[in-house]
Amino acid sequence: MTEENQPKKLCPQCSKPTVFEFRPFCSARCKQLDLGKWFNESYVIPGEETIPANDHNEE
């Protein structure tokens, strides 16, 4: 499929149409905002919290 035949997708940050160069975002700004949310741990992947193997319980 060519770019013209693909359905228009929206930027997950601001809902504007995506730009091929920055996909799935519309601009470098929206791309950086999303990355910042990952760095600040605003986004998380669900799962159980694990205890690191190097922690020892001293009782």
Rank of each mutant, 00 (worst) to 15 (best):
E4G: 10
L33I: 05
L35P: 01
E21Q: 14
P17F: 03
Q6T: 08
A53Q: 07
R23N: 11
V19W: 09
V44E: 10
D34R: 06
C14D: 14
G47W: 06
T2K: 13
K31R: 11
E21W: 05
K16G: 03
F25Q: 13
M1T: 06
E3S: 15
H56D: 07
A53G: 07
P12K: 05
A53Y: 04
P46N: 06
C30N: 09
S15P: 01
Q32F: 00
P17N: 04
C26S: 08
Y43Q: 04
E59R: 10
H56G: 03
M1L: 14
F39I: 03
K8P: 08
E49A: 12
K37L: 12
N5V: 01
N5K: 08
A53V: 02
E48T: 04
F39W: 04
E58Q: 08
Y43H: 12
E48I: 01
G36F: 02
T18I: 15
S27C: 13
S42P: 01
I45E: 12
E58A: 00
I51K: 12
L35E: 14
M1I: 04
E21G: 02
A53P: 11
A28G: 10
E41C: 04
F22E: 15
A53K: 04
W38C: 07
S27P: 07
T2C: 14
E4F: 05
K31G: 02
V19Y: 13
F39Y: 07
Q32G: 01
K9T: 05
S15W: 01
P7W: 01
E21L: 11
R23M: 09
K9H: 09
T50D: 09
V44C: 11
C30P: 06
E41F: 03
F22H: 13
I51V: 15
A28N: 13
P52S: 04
N40P: 00
K9P: 01
D55K: 12
E49G: 01
P46Y: 02
E4R: 14
L33W: 00
C11I: 00
L35M: 08
P52W: 02
A53M: 10
E3R: 13
K8M: 10
S27N: 08
A53D: 15
E48G: 06
L10H: 00
D34E: 13
N57S: 04
S42R: 09
N40L: 02
N5D: 15
A53L: 06
V19K: 14
E41A: 07
N5W: 06
W38T: 10
P7E: 11
E58M: 03
I45D: 08
E3Q: 15
E3V: 15
E4V: 14
M1K: 07
R29I: 09
N57R: 03
E3P: 04
H56Y: 04
P24N: 09
C11A: 06
D55T: 07
A28P: 12
I45C: 05
Q6K: 13
S27D: 12
M1N: 12
W38K: 14
F25I: 05
W38V: 09
N40K: 07
W38P: 03
F22Q: 11
T50R: 08
C30L: 07
P17V: 03
W38R: 13
L33G: 00
H56P: 05
E48V: 02
S15C: 06
E59Y: 10
D34N: 12
I45W: 06
Q6Y: 06
M1H: 09
